[in-house]
Simulated assay, not measured.
Amino acid sequence: MAVPFSSLMAQNQPLTPTEKKQMLDTINKIKTGVIKGRTGVNSAALAAYRGAASSNISAYEFYLKCYKEMNFTRKGAKESEYRDWRAKNKDYLSSREHGTARRLQLQFLILTIRAANLKEEERDSLIPELITLMDNCISAYPYIGKSKRILSSGATGSTFAQVYDLQSTLVGLKNWPRSPMDVSGIYESTIMPRYRTTETVKELMQAWDKRMSQEVKIVASENSSEAEANFKNKTLPKLKWFKYMDLLRAGQSREALTLMVTLVRTNPDHENIDEWLDDLEGYISGKVDPGTFEEAEKKRKEAEIANQKSKSANPAGGLGNTNIDDARKALEGLNLGGGRNGGRRGIPENVDIDQIRELFNRR
């Protein structure tokens, strides 16, 4: 049946103000419902996390409940299987190291939920707490042994978060860290952008100093003279250069350029020395514009997006031709007694140990 020409014309007409209002009202209702649903889940998780984060023992006991729920109850396993798993791993799970790491992980999840319940511009109020939590994690880091990986892994993928399906409720949470020990990421994505304005230069410089002091402590905790030398000779000068670039973009050219000259004078063998000298010459002569905070932030976000796309295209991280399924199976055998698989401890000869480490660090 032919459609009248007048009907076709009507379909191509712009929306009327009334129609737009009706559609926007519908969207707002849907949005309210979605947010309400997420808030309900988050509220339950928040209450549970706060109770469990009160002590190492509480965190340990809560971890057992969550692990049992995810790996035994929901899979229809027998109670005896859970008891066997718990008995095999009691020494590690009940250790101070594990309890400390889980308590700090819970504190980070609490902050994450609170951040999700705020608008992005309102999250500035959480920055002091986030920095304090990082300090606490860094202080504990040298003493928690193999539990270090807990604080370096994505918290929203942890057993605590999985029980409440927390990740699905945080889709709108942008520019927030994945773990409390992702110090570089926290400063670059969460803290520094808040202070990159001409009105908050003092706070920005303080943030840079705090970041460098925290990264120094992390490297020191590794007890590796090689790592310390690498940080001192390569990484720290780079961080200082980036700090001085922020100072330059803030309009503090005299101080910034003076500090840059001192930096290149004291680091003539640095891998970036040629680039720094060329840029510095341009800044001093006025031939090169350092750009604005906004331009620098745009470039950072573009680089971040490109990096995420690269990771999505190569999820295995380019770890050679190792069969990732074999590595995953081997990892399951090593994971705290292996849950229901009886705690296989051997690694097949055809599995690359680096593949194991990569999968292990994702947990």
Rank of each mutant, 00 (worst) to 15 (best):
F231C: 10
E122L: 05
T73Q: 10
Y164P: 00
A207E: 00
V351Q: 00
L106Q: 11
L104P: 05
T16C: 02
R178F: 04
M134K: 01
K21E: 12
L106A: 11
M205G: 01
R114Y: 05
I138A: 05
I347Q: 02
N71S: 13
A59Q: 08
S253A: 13
Y143D: 14
I353H: 03
I113R: 08
S225R: 13
I305T: 04
P290V: 07
R178I: 04
E199C: 09
G172W: 01
G282W: 11
Y143L: 08
E199R: 14
P128G: 08
S43M: 06
F108A: 09
K146C: 14
T190H: 03
L151Y: 06
S213K: 15
L331S: 02
L359Y: 03
A77Q: 13
P268G: 03
P177Q: 03
E19I: 12
A250F: 04
S80V: 02
L319E: 06
G317Y: 01
A59E: 08
A327L: 02
G317R: 01
D274I: 09
N71R: 15
L247M: 11
L257N: 02
L64R: 04
K232A: 14
T258R: 05
I324F: 14
T322M: 01
A155I: 11
I356M: 02
K65F: 00
S310W: 06
L277V: 14
F108D: 10
C137K: 12
Y92I: 14
P180L: 08
R357S: 08
L257R: 03
Q13H: 01
T266V: 13
E226H: 10
L247W: 01
F108R: 06
N117M: 13
E222I: 00
G251P: 00
E215N: 07
N223I: 06
S312C: 06
E226A: 12
M181L: 15
G291N: 01
D269S: 09
T266Y: 13
G157I: 07
I186Q: 05
K299N: 07
S147G: 06
R211E: 11
E121D: 15
N56Y: 01
L259Q: 13
Y67G: 07
M134L: 07
M260S: 02
D91Q: 15
S94K: 08
L151S: 08
N323V: 03
E349W: 10
N136D: 15
A53Q: 04
S225Y: 09
M23C: 10
Y63W: 15
K21G: 07
A220N: 12
C137I: 11
L24C: 09
Q107P: 07
R211F: 09
E228A: 07
G37W: 05
E69S: 09
E349I: 12
